[in-house]
Design a protein around this nucleic acid. Sequence first.
RNA 1: GGUCCAGUAGCUCAGCUGGAUAGAGCAGCGGUUUUCUAAACCGCAGGCCACAGGUUCGAGCCCUGUCUGGAUCACCA
Length: 594
Amino acid sequence: MNMEIIIKDKFAEAFSELYSHSIDKNTIAIQETRKEFEGDFTVNVFPFVRFAKSKPEELANKLGEYFVNNIPDVKSFNVIKGFLNLSIKSSYWLDIAKEATKNSNYGFELANENAAPIVIEYSSPNTNKPLHLGHIRNNLLGFSIAEILEASGKNVKKVNLVNDRGIHICKSMLAWQKHGNGETPETNGEKGDHLVGKYYVQFDKDYKVEIAELIANGKTEKEAKAEAPIIKEAQQMLRDWEAKEPQVYKLWETMNAWVYAGFDVTYKKLGVDFDKIYYESETYLLGKDVVNKGFKDGVLYQKEDGSIWANLEDKGLDQKLLLRSDGTSVYMTQDIGTAQLREIDYSPEKMLYVVGNEQNYHFEVLTLVLEKLGFDWASKIHHISYGMVELPHGKMKSREGTVVDADDLIDGIVADAKRLTSESGKIDNLSDSEADKLYYQVGMAALKFFILKVDPKRKMLFNPEESIDFNGNTGPFVQYAYARIQSIMRKAKDAEFGSWDNTLSINEKESSLLRIIYNYPSVVQVAANNYSPAIIASYAYDLAKEYNQFYHDNHIMNESDRDKAAFRLDLSKLTGDIIKSSMSLLGIEVPNQM
RNA sequence: GGUCCAGUAGCUCAGCUGGAUAGAGCAGCGGUUUUCUAAACCGCAGGCCACAGGUUCGAGCCCUGUCUGGAUCACCA
């Protein structure tokens, strides 16, 4: 049984016995004892001195005695000010270690396939340009959150919402018609999403030229932007698309197919996947239907120009447009449709959206509008908001060329991994394909850990001038620790070194490792509840660090005491398993050798 | 202007429901290899936790105000 719960129970028991006062167990704070002090768990008695009406030290000593006498696994205690430090018997830790060795899925729960799923949307790209660093953060967060939820026993469905329609797509299409000379990914070997993105940039160039000309001829900037022939052409193209004009529609299908082929390559490199992909071109009409029905039911209202609005003033917000005066849909309308469809498809327990914090307001409004429309499932929606990735000179902007392209970044870091690994000369015994796999694993670990170790809620800074580190608090550090553990295990087995079931007494350092094992299930749980890959990432790092220290303090292979060495090997195996589990929650592969 | 988020070492970041002397990595300086793999380890240096009040046994964390930065408040997505 969980020691912290036992301590809390006994704490309350002791209090009523000694001071005839019943206390709320939730107010008892138990933490791991800090390394500088002796003990395993620390109970803070300060909050209770007023009930006991005695000095903190006195109270702590009385409770300490009570614990030693009434909890068999408590070995001893010491008191420093109001902190009661409890030392737990080795046998308790050993039992936990044994249990963990037996169960290879220690800390994980099996997903219940029959339960209402948690639908998690992430990635959500536009089909007019390639993925960039911002998408990488989104994809890695979304995927690892899904993994973490699944590890905590949830039935998780990963979905993607592709924004495949709208004026921005038409811009790429139009520019390709004008400048493309019929080039395709097949003819010029360019990745499809990059090719389409190139023409999106081209459109913007042409547009700016036309705007400048119109302004030179006396138009205001606003007029110029509205009247430039090329934007009018694009708008016409969008109308043709909505009317399913065959030529436009065919081109749209063709170019989108190029983009999807490109996205697939990038997703594969990132190691993320989806159970289902939604396309806005297939959901926006449903959104319009829902809004129109809301209008008929009198929940929404119409302005004189025919546009349809939701009034959220009673909720402290303003009025929100849902259908334009020309009857076309806006972003919010599409999201209403998509949410409705998701409810129909899955009847989920929750709908999670991994979307940047710049859309906090949007999701607040979305929920309120759905409530207003009378959908009781509106409360299922949770926006998992994450901070933007910023460059040293500010936010990334596609059209200004200040983006860090996802493919470039991945290829660059894998190349770095190759250079550093080759220099180390440790992999001379690997075949070329094995070596390539290793470069990829190490490079991606560096990238993924770099992204995931930062608190998702916070914005983060990325400096392209500084390459991503492979030393210190990084993915490769954790992988390296794991690889060394594997090496020990191999050599130990080859030498038939020790027996795996034999365990002896443990010292302080070993107990700190065991404590991590003890904490492992709760770490997964906490991370799942907080949706926080950062916790898992920092945890994997702490564990690897703890292992490195342990290794350097104990020269395992040369231990004269055979049984003691065997125990340590047990510990290594456990540590390795846990590192591997934490890394897999983050979608990071761990190689056996580095 | 309203709303929301943030401000911790030179840099990038941790810091759990308020607890013991605020921690890592990078960068800087100095060390460590007859032991499994130095992508490691150890040491030194580096802090008015933006600022000012408040709450209490106790505040980086909670409250109020100020300053700074960011996001958002579109018939853009």
